[in-house]
Design a protein around this nucleic acid. Structure first.
Lengths: 201, 201
DNA sequence: ACATTTGCTTAACGGTGTTAGATTATTTAC
DNA sequence: GTAAATAATCTAACACCGTTAAGCAAATGT
């Protein structure tokens, strides 16, 4: 029975073809457009056979997540191995992380739960802009040299916002990580002080 | 017809009762469990009448987003007004932002698109932990004083991760914000250098 | 008292993930 | 080679989703 292996290989092929189809749909139509029936259409089968390869839709997503981490791991490892001293390694690794997020948007969204749904509406919402206006005003007052350019304010605003939103995200997504609330508050305040100090230096 | 006003008031009441029901469902069952029929159940109506108060489901979400920003705006404003010098204002405002995110998780998730779906699985995923292990190793090598505690590594790791994930999030959610790619890369590298420098100081 | 508007419901459409049963094709056994 | 067994695949259905159209019943205007 040499066909046993051939059949297993075929099975593996359609399994990856399911994943490829899913990724393809996501890349062209976005995550919200991904459906079992659409995947089935693309691989020229009917929906139920997908359940012979994955237990359910989340199973597909989980496998794609795994593959995303594999790519990310490879990128970061290569970046690390191209430098000698730790500082250079660190920067290169994080840049690789950054690049991965944008060259594999769909993966990053899946892995870190960033959905870009209905952002156009939020961009033109009064209440949202009021908040950023308030923050921007105080940021401007932090600068000792005047006048302050729009770019300077914007940059510092994003810097503040980034680290805080990032910290919040981790704590929302992994509520039982190894950090306590006090530790998180400490990280937060240290980061804020650090950014604030860096404004006039 | 003084009843005109009473009727309008009743209409406004059921409108807010729809929003309250939606919020209630989300708080107890999560965003993915929110459905028009469930809202209708809770307000003891049938689903179609909701469309007399909101154009569609996204309309409800949009109104909740608006209310979220109203609460956030109030919190931040109060924090700002309780301090005098800009540094204290800044810290208090961002702490208020932070507190809002956790005391109004559902709002924050809606406003900034952080969904906490299937996080338990990702916590125990080999590939995910491999990546953090690699990063953690290099972070450890950045410390000059030895030995380095788990907590120190964890804290710096989260600091790095936060600002980068945050920056990525903004750029994914608002692709046409006022920042260019070069500017973002500059923010990224500055932030990394800053955190790296701060490790041994 | 009749006509009209209003409030609300039932029923339906097309979509989703998922499962059970029937059907077809392939392999195995004799 | 033919019959039985097994595997591969499909059709049909279930229960849900957001949304819309049609209809009923009660309140209102005249």
């Amino acid at each position: 029975m040499g066909s046993k292996e051939r059949i297993l290989r075929l099975k593996e092929e359609t399994r990856t073809s399911i994943l490829d189809a899913a990724l393809n749909i996501v890349q062209t139509e976005g995550w919200q457009a991904l459906s079992m029936r659409k995947i089935a259409d693309q691989i020229e089968y009917t929906a139920p056979i997908i359940y012979e390869y994955f237990s359910n839709k989340e199973g597909i997503l989980l496998e794609l997540t795994r593959r995303g981490y594999q790519i990310l791991g490879k990128d970061i490892r290569e970046a690390r191995d191209q430098h000698e001293n730790p500082e250079d390694k660190m920067e290169a690794m994080w840049v690789a992380y950054w690049n991965f997020a944008f060259s594999h948007k769909e993966f990053y969204q899946l892995m870190y739960g960033v959905d870009m749904v209905c952002c156009t509406v939020k961009n033109s919402m009064q209440e949202a802009e009021q908040v950023s206006a308030m923050l921007g005003d105080v940021i401007e007052s932090l600068f000792s040299k005047k006048p302050v350019s729009e770019n300077d304010i914007c940059m510092k605003y994003y810097t503040y916002w980034s680290i805080i939103h990032g910290l919040i995200s981790i704590n929302l997504v992994r509520p039982n990580g190894r950090t306590t609330d006090e530790l998180n508050q400490q990280i937060l305040k240290d980061a804020i002080k650090g950014i604030t100090l860096s404004i006039n230096s």
